[in-house]
């Protein structure tokens, strides 16, 4: 498979790309999204992460935040593993006393969202192009420097990938993504 996030140079991150020869975003389908409803208590995250680390599974992205009920938090984890070993991890996650509920979401059955903050070079020549492109995507400029802009973009992970790619030629200086959060798609009556 193609490289996803490879550190290049001084801690910069190149955007995720699909494998050569695959349609854009196909690599993502190998990813599994596991969302956990957990008790909002100290030490829960390390117990959850420990079950992945024990097997040498790398966590691709991770988002943790409280839910509408202050007793519980929701953890969204994206891992890139085969299904069979993941099933075993999910069973063992379920054994953790602080884990209340686990849902494994296939990307096609989930509504996913992610947030991006990106600082891109934008001098007098390129600035208007960058702003225009941001507007096309529905991203917002949240900070303006002498020769750079910081843009905020909330969308699906795939659109965020696209946006990164579009920004790359202008020179990405800093980039931070939150990791995806997900909820199951709703059923609609025909």
């Amino acid at each position: 498979m193609s490289a996803r996030r490879e550190p290049v140079g001084t801690g910069r991150v190149v955007p995720m790309r699909a494998a050569a020869g695959e349609p854009h975003g196909a690599a993502r389908l190998r990813h599994h999204v596991v969302t956990l409803l957990v008790e909002n208590k100290a030490g829960v995250l390390v117990r959850v992460a420990g079950l992945f680390a024990r097997r040498g599974f790398n966590i691709f992205s991770l988002a943790v935040a409280p839910t509408h009920d202050p007793r519980f938090s929701r953890i969204s984890i994206v891992v890139d593993v085969e299904s069979a070993p993941l099933e075993q991890v999910v069973d063992q996650l379920d054994k953790l006393v602080n884990v209340v509920e686990i849902t494994e979401l296939h990307p096609l059955e989930a509504r996913e969202a992610e947030l991006l903050l990106l600082t891109v070079s934008a001098d007098a020549v390129s600035r208007s192009q960058v702003i225009q492109l941001a507007e096309v995507f529905g991203a917002r400029v949240v900070d303006v420097g002498t020769d750079a802009l910081t843009v905020r973009f909330a969308s699906s992970p795939e659109e965020i990938d696209d946006f990164e790619e579009v920004m790359r030629p202008y020179g990405i200086r800093e980039l931070q993504r939150t990791g995806r959060i997900a909820l199951p798609k709703l059923v609609r009556e025909d």
Partner: peptide, 14 residues
């Protein structure tokens, strides 16, 4: 010790 024993206990508490 709660960190050390997380993998060898059903649960632990501080």
């Amino acid at each position: 010790i709660t960190g050390i024993t997380a993998g060898v206990t059903k649960h632990n508490w501080l």
